[in-house]
Structures are given as structure tokens and as C-alpha cells.
Design a protein around this nucleic acid. Sequence first.
DNA 1: AACGCGTCCAACCGCTGTCCA
DNA 2: ATGGACAGCGGTTGGACGCGT
Length: 206
Amino acid sequence: MAAMKREVNKGAWTAEEDRKLGEVIEIQGPKKWKTIAVKAGLNRCGKSCRLRWMNYLRPNIKRGNISDQEEDLILRLHKLLGNRWSLIAGRLPGRTDNEIKNYWNSHLSKKMNKKKSEKKQTGASLTREKTSIEKRREVEEETSGEINKMAITKEENKSSGDENEHEQEQESSSSNNGINFNVDEFFDFSNEDPLNLEWINSFLET
DNA sequence: AACGCGTCCAACCGCTGTCCA
DNA sequence: ATGGACAGCGGTTGGACGCGT
């Protein structure tokens, strides 16, 4: 009866659970998560199994040590896409959406806030010395910002629309209302070295 | 040593989209 | 056309850990 319904297991995964999950996925592949959970004899929901696999057990996962290059890419992609973590992760081989989201929330969002408040404080006269990577980043942010504006303008021309409120962009456009570009084209990975920034530059040029 | 506080990250939750009967 | 099951996503939470006092 109702009492027969067992509570599902929650919380941290044990090595034993990981092993069982891995075994079943090896046999039937990463699909039908509910079935996987049952077959593995895990008292967990399919969702939880999927998450564990995607973020931890999947082969070729990179963990920690996000390089400058990767960070740079995340910043730029976030500028373009907002909080669409899975799309951003798609451009960073071996990285998961969860990791990128965490990295953004713990590192980059703070950096961005800091930067913003610095800009406010120093106003137009920005005289302090910058590291080369900071300089580069700033230039690139300007560029992608420009592109966003261009895309927005295109759209506005089409619908000869409303006011130009977009300027005061919440830097992420997290609602994504302002972003307008060809997602299919953007995520055509056929010609890869994903960390090669050429692709994004050429995209931004169009 | 012990406490408080901040940070990080794994995992959960709730919602939306997609598929299929 | 519709409704249920499942997959996937982004936001949020909570526990572990490190560090300063």
C-alpha cells in the first residue's frame, strides 16, 4: 500500500552507487534514467542518476582548473547568451553546465560586479595599469557588446519597433530578450577546435 | 582549540519542452 | 488533439571545507 512506497535516497552519492550506475549505463547507455535507476538497484530517482552521470561520471569530464582561455570564453559566451549554461558548456569540451554555472556564480559574477563598480568609481578617466589579459578581455567585451547592439538593431529595423532601452543592458541579458542571432549557425560545431577563439571572432564579424 | 564566517560545489527542486500513445 | 511520462535546463540550497580571529 501507501506504506510500501519507499523514500528515495537523496544526498551525496557513494562510490558503490557510482559503480552500480556506471555498470548499468555501460550496458544500456545513458537513456531511460528511470529504468537505469531501477536496474542499478539504486533507490534514487532517474533525474538524480542523470545528473550524477552528466556532472560527474561521464567520460572525458574535466574538473576544476578552468584556464584563462576557458574563462575568457565563458565571459564572452555569457555576454552573448546570458545564463544559458548548457549552451555555454557545449562550447567547452569536458565542462558541464553545472560547473560553469557554479564557476560563474562563485568567480565571474563577482569579477563582473567588481568591474562595474570600478567603472562607476573611476568614471571616464581610467588610468590604472591593467594586466594584458584584463586589457584583452575588456576589448573583447566591448566588441561583443557592439555585436549584441547590432543584432538588436537589426531586429528593431525589422519590426521598426520601440524605444532604444537596450543600451542599459543588464550585462547578461539574462532574460535573453535582447539577443537575436542564428542559434543554429552559432552552434554548428562541425569545424572544431572549440577553444580556438577564431570561430567566435568570425561569428561576431558577420 | 574553538568559533564564526565566507566560499565552493554537488545535488535538489521546479519548471518547460518534447515525445509518444 | 491531448495528456502523461520523461528529459533537460536554470535557480537554489546545504554541507564540507578553509581561513581568520
